[in-house]
Amino acid sequence: MGFYNTSGTLVTVAVDSIAISGLNAYLIPETGLQTFQLPLNPQATEVLITFYMGTQMHTLALTYQVETQVVSKDCGALAYLNDLQLTTTTFAQVTISNPRLTTNGGINVKIRME
């Protein structure tokens, strides 16, 4: 996911920590964030992400589907996450730019910062 300004340009945002449902730890970025690779639990189909940004707190709830494919004996079976959808958010505007999640597929979620 990536943070954008109103003109659609990537911007750096100061995020103190990120909480992800199902994960018993906070992610603490070392520097400001422009993009962020969201870890998702393949045993779940929804996730709640909480961004702590100074005195502000924003949440983002997403749902997704998990699809298993047996690729080959050498690649094995893989779990693909797709059909990403926004449920709720406290950000001004969030758009799903690509509902199929991959580790190198670019930006899936665009968060517009005001």
């Binding site: 992800i20 199902g22 994960l23 730890a25 870890p39 998702l40 639990n41 393949p42 045993q43 298993t68 047996v70 094995g76 079976a77 779990a79």
Partner: peptide, 18 residues
């Protein structure tokens, strides 16, 4: 049937059977 091991980033390793 497929039984396989998933090793997702940060989340625990999962044994999946479908």
């Amino acid at each position: 049937q497929v039984s396989y091991t998933l090793t997702p980033d940060l989340f625990p390793v999962v044994q999946q059977t479908l």
